[in-house]
Design a protein around this nucleic acid. Structure first.
Length: 288
DNA sequence: TATGCGCCGAGAATAAATAT
DNA sequence: ATATTTATTCTCGGCGCATA
């Protein structure tokens, strides 16, 4: 066995990167919504992915904190207000006892809480205000996935997700995601994958091929569902999604090697199925 | 007005880390 | 050794929007 001198980074002249294996963690991240939006904007990312939480939905988060020895149920809702019943739960010997505590109203637009117990109104308002503002690690993960969904491609390394292969063309994009995560104390790990190693090339090929095959499969399933109640717009959108996937298969051809032909075949099958369906629906429509 | 569709949050399932 | 907490993905259902 020969001993190679330590390779400088990046790998070596001529050996280009295929991409990176990345994983992120937002464990324990607690950030306010405005701070998250600011972090996205400062990093040059689309801040539309971090949306506001409507008072109604924030209240369901707040309910978790308010549910100690208490059961909260929605009793009514109209355009402006949602009403909840708070029922106190206590242990009474060998059984539980329940007593009506209050009825609480939530204004869906202002996020204002009202109820006839002043202390409880204040407590509920505090929890609600916090829930409207606060974003958890899970929320940040959702934001990251939406960013990648809209602007880059991530191929799961394992079916459960969490670790992804990212093609090198998106390196600049991850740089921005990394900057964003840095501002909110999240962490992203990035392992460069150089081209030319047998196992690296194989693993990249398999994960990219599996990811693209999943897209093609989605198209196939969607087309199979279409019927005479499907709108023209939906059919057009399906065709456009198929074109996008075709573009991706082309763009990642170098990763796919011998897997490309199979993907091309499957995509063509999905496109033909759509074409046939469109023709059949047009025929049905003409008769009707 | 009804319907399809995307978005969002909840909850289940699962896994891993941490506390008891 | 067991229970609890935390994080993650997946699926489902409700809501609002656009459109026929």
């Amino acid at each position: 066995m020969t001993t190679n001198p330590p390779a400088p980074f990046p790998v070596a002249a001529g050996a280009r990167l295929l991409g990176e294996v990345i994983a992120w963690t937002c464990s324990g991240v607690a950030v306010t919504h405005p701070a998250l939006v600011a972090a996205l904007r400062d990093a040059g990312l689309d801040d539309g992915v971090a949306r506001e939480l409507a008072p109604k939905h924030a209240f369901t988060r707040a309910c978790k904190k308010l549910s100690d020895q208490r059961i909260i149920r929605q009793v009514a809702e109209d355009a402006a207000t949602v009403r909840f019943q708070f029922t106190h739960e206590s242990r009474d010997g060998d059984r539980f006892a329940y007593t009506l505590e209050t009825l609480l109203a939530l204004d869906k637009t202002t996020g204002q809480v009202t109820c006839d117990l002043p202390g409880l109104a204040t407590l509920a308002q505090e929890h609600l205000d916090h829930a409207i503002d606060a974003r958890s690690g899970a929320d940040v993960t959702r934001v990251i996935q939406k960013l990648f969904d809209r602007h880059a491609d991530l191929f799961p390394v394992r079916p459960q997700g969490g670790v992804y292969f990212m093609p090198d063309r998106h390196t600049g994009f991850v740089d921005r995601v990394q900057a964003m995560l840095g501002r909110i104390n999240g962490q992203i790990l990035r392992f460069p994958v150089p081209g030319g190693t047998p196992e690296g090339d194989r693993s990249v090929k398999e994960s990219v091929a599996a990811g693209l095959a999943a897209l093609v499969d989605d198209h196939r399933k969607a087309v199979a569902q279409f019927g005479d109640d499907t709108r023209d717009e939906t059919l057009k959108r399906a065709a456009s999604k198929i074109r996008v996937t075709q573009f991706k298969i082309q763009a990642y051809a170098e990763y796919l090697s011998d897997e490309k032909a199979k993907l091309d075949r499957e995509l063509t099958a999905a496109r033909d199925a759509l074409r046939q369906k469109v023709e059949r629906l047009a025929a049905v429509l003409a008769v009707a």
